[in-house]
């Protein structure tokens, strides 16, 4: 598996859609689940985000991943990529076709981005009681929304882009708990809808294919977080 760092040449164009990603990056993970679900045959390269290749800034001035490259088309920003893939590969739908339901999903993602992802990120280095309580309270609102929707997944009978976006983030929580030896638990009754969703997502074939492709499990995720906490991130943890 090639890991591209500073000094690595930019890889030659692929005949397939290509994702510039990192194994442990939650934003990319959501896109990868979605590509699997859409049945897109894609290839990927790993970017070493601790030591980025120089040309990364040429393809995305913000220097961020994920980046999707299809032929001469390069698209960055997670949400923009979701929309782009939906436009580009419309056969398997991963967003509602009803404008209102789509707007609701977009607002859900906006709120997740605003209230959840930053807090989970800061838990990596600062697992303070305050941060943990905040994350739990956001998950409680999510539990409520799931209860109101009353479906197996936020997307209905099967996961859609919102489920995959959210999963990329909440999947980190158990590894963060293990890495920091935290003892908080989300109550099975209080977070009933959330737990039911977690159980189903955990069995989703597209998520499991991704785990296989990128050799991801709780153990290597935990090892990765430990390495981040120690100040020398090991992006190859568990390989």
């Amino acid at each position: 598996m090639s890991l591209l760092s500073k000094g690595s040449p930019r890889p030659a164009k692929s005949s397939k859609p290509r994702l510039y990603t990192a194994r442990f990056d939650p934003y990319s993970a959501g896109i990868r689940f979605l590509l699997n679900k859409k049945g897109v045959d894609y290839d990927f390269v790993y970017i070493n985000m601790q030591d980025k290749p120089e040309w990364l800034a040429d393809i995305n001035p913000a220097g961020q991943i994920p980046i999707m490259e299809i032929g001469d088309e390069i698209v960055c920003e997670t949400i923009v990529i979701y929309d782009y893939l939906e436009d580009k590969f419309p056969q398997v739908k991963t967003q509602p076709t009803d404008p209102y339901l789509k707007a609701k999903d977009k607002i859900f993602i906006d709120h997740t981005k605003e209230y959840l992802t930053g807090k989970i990120t800061s838990m990596v280095k600062n697992p303070t009681q305050e941060n943990i309580e905040y994350v739990c309270s956001v998950l409680k609102s999510i539990n409520k929304i799931m209860g109101e929707r009353g479906t197996d997944f936020l997307g209905g009978t099967s996961p859609n882009f919102v489920d995959y976006y959210l999963w990329g983030w909440v999947e980190l929580l158990s590894a963060l708990k293990a890495a920091h030896e935290l003892s908080f638990e989300l109550d099975k009754d209080e977070y009933k809808h959330y737990w039911a969703w977690v159980m189903k997502m955990d069995k989703d074939q597209h998520i499991n294919n991704d785990r296989e492709t990128h050799k991801l499990n709780l153990k290597c995720r935990t090892a990765f977080f430990k390495s981040v906490i120690n100040g020398s991130p090991d992006v190859n943890a568990g390989l």
Binding site: I70, E73, I81, D83, P99, Y100, K102
Partner: peptide
């Protein structure tokens, strides 16, 4: 986007996925 999806007459965005993404 809601307006554009609901009122599809006189679209104010591109119909090409790549242009739209850009």
């Amino acid at each position: 986007e809601y307006l554009e999806d609901t009122f599809t007459d006189k679209p104010l965005r591109s119909s090409d996925p790549a242009t739209r993404a850009m």
